[in-house]
């Protein structure tokens, strides 16, 4: 649904554009935080990990700014229909993105606690999983910026891959822990990292659902998430 007409009150459009800009900046920072946290984990780079922790404050600040702008716009412009839905979605999306940032920070904090993890075979799996999660977050935020309900649906479909990865990493780590009782602590940390990544994927799905609501005004149906086996599109996405 393209926005053909501008608002009669131009300042309203300016507010909306500023809001969208802030959300997209916040999403970019969250993606970057995740990428850096995973790189730090992969390379044992403590400086990079510390930077991720520091940068999270900026994400929090952005969340506050978006909240304030949204409340202000609701109060002053009395948005209706898709504008109103966008305000509400914006409020929810920023709180989700903030959570994503927190998970990235959480992963970064664990880097310092794991100095012998390089040998654990789950690490490459985690890296692949994080790549998918970054893509999901990216696409979810893109779908918000572009008002693209189809892209949003595809994001929720692809979240299944993340869940599959999580299950597989879980099994791998549990087996590894049974074989290497000395590394149980590190492995447990990695398990949390996997869980965080899985949660981030869910959050990307939440964003996609909000985008779907903004664009269509309705809630995303279960079958649209590709959870029914006969949905060919979903199968294709997984491939």
């Amino acid at each position: 649904m393209a926005i053909v007409n501008d608002h009669t009150v131009k300042a309203f459009d300016e507010d909306l554009n500023r809001l969208r800009g802030l959300i997209s900046e916040m999403g970019g920072r969250a993606e970057q935080a995740l990428l850096q946290a995973m790189t730090a984990l992969n390379k044992g780079d403590l400086d990079l990990a510390a930077q991720v922790v520091r940068d999270d404050k900026k994400i929090d600040a952005l969340e506050a700014e978006v909240e304030q702008l949204a409340v202000q716009t609701i109060a002053l412009r009395a948005p209706m229909a898709d504008d109103l839905r966008e305000m509400i979605a914006a409020l929810k999306i920023v709180s989700v993105v903030e959570r994503i940032g927190d998970y990235a920070k959480n992963i970064a904090k664990r880097v310092a606690l794991m100095d012998q993890t390089r040998s654990i075979e789950a690490i490459p799996l985690l890296m692949s999983m994080s790549n998918i999660v970054v893509e999901l977050i990216h696409d979810a935020l893109d779908s918000f910026a572009a008002r693209d309900a189809d892209l949003a649906v595809r994001v929720t479909v692809r979240d299944k891959n993340v869940d599959d990865f999580y299950n597989s990493i879980f099994r791998t780590l549990v087996t590894f822990m049974m074989e290497n009782p000395k590394l149980i602590s590190e492995s447990a940390h990695l398990l949390f990292v996997a869980k965080n990544l899985e949660r981030m994927g869910d959050h990307a799905t939440n964003i996609a659902e909000m985008v779907y609501y903004v664009v269509t005004g309705g809630r995303m149906e279960e079958r649209e998430r590709g959870e029914q086996p006969e949905d060919g599109a979903a199968e294709q996405e997984q491939g």
Binding site: N5, H7, T8, M80, A81, D83
Partner: peptide
């Protein structure tokens, strides 16, 4: 009508995009 109008013209009017 106010949260999810079906017609483009309705939406444009209630969101303040009316010409």
């Amino acid at each position: 009508i106010f949260t999810n109008p079906k017609q483009e013209r309705t939406k444009d009017y209630i969101t303040g995009r009316y010409g």
